[in-house]
Simulated assay, not measured.
Amino acid sequence: MRILLIEDEDAVAIPLVDALTRRGLAVDRARDSGEADAYLAAIDYVAVLLDLGLPDDDGIALLMRMRARGDTRPVLVLTARGSVDARILGLNEGADEYMVKPFDVDELHARLLAVLRRRDGYIGKSLRCGALEFLVEARTAYVEAQPLTLSVRETELLELLLRRAGKVVPKRVVEDQLFGLDGDLGSNAVEVYVHRLRKRLEDGATGARIETVRGVGYMIVPVA
Score class of each variant (00 low, 15 high):
residue 94 G to C: 05
residue 95 A to I: 09
residue 112 L to I: 00
residue 108 L to V: 10
residue 107 E to Y: 09
residue 108 L to Q: 02
residue 100 V to H: 03
residue 94 G to L: 00
residue 93 E to S: 15
residue 121 G to H: 12
residue 102 P to F: 01
residue 108 L to R: 06
residue 109 H to E: 05
residue 125 K to L: 02
residue 114 A to G: 14
residue 123 I to T: 08
residue 112 L to K: 02
residue 89 L to E: 15
residue 113 L to A: 08
residue 105 V to A: 07
residue 90 G to W: 00
residue 113 L to P: 07
residue 116 L to P: 13
residue 97 E to N: 06
residue 109 H to N: 09
residue 108 L to F: 01
residue 118 R to S: 12
residue 88 I to T: 15
residue 109 H to G: 02
residue 108 L to Y: 01
residue 111 R to I: 03
residue 92 N to H: 14
residue 124 G to H: 04
residue 117 R to L: 05
residue 98 Y to H: 10
residue 105 V to Y: 10
residue 102 P to T: 03
residue 95 A to H: 12
residue 117 R to P: 13
residue 116 L to T: 13
residue 119 R to N: 10
residue 110 A to R: 12
residue 119 R to W: 11
residue 115 V to Q: 10
residue 99 M to E: 02
residue 124 G to I: 01
residue 116 L to I: 13
residue 122 Y to K: 08
residue 122 Y to G: 09
residue 100 V to D: 00
residue 98 Y to F: 08
residue 108 L to W: 00
residue 93 E to F: 11
residue 108 L to G: 05
residue 97 E to K: 07
residue 106 D to E: 13
residue 91 L to M: 15
residue 89 L to S: 14
residue 123 I to H: 06
residue 96 D to H: 11
residue 123 I to F: 04
residue 108 L to D: 03
residue 118 R to A: 14
residue 121 G to E: 02
residue 99 M to L: 06
residue 91 L to K: 15
residue 125 K to Q: 14
residue 114 A to R: 15
residue 94 G to M: 01
residue 115 V to T: 12
residue 104 D to R: 13
residue 94 G to H: 08
residue 94 G to V: 04
residue 122 Y to C: 04
residue 104 D to K: 12
residue 95 A to C: 12
residue 111 R to F: 07
residue 124 G to L: 02
residue 97 E to W: 01
residue 99 M to H: 07
residue 121 G to P: 14
residue 91 L to C: 11
residue 92 N to Y: 06
residue 105 V to M: 05
residue 98 Y to I: 01
residue 121 G to R: 14
residue 125 K to R: 14
residue 121 G to M: 03
residue 101 K to D: 04
residue 117 R to W: 09
residue 118 R to Q: 13
residue 115 V to P: 03
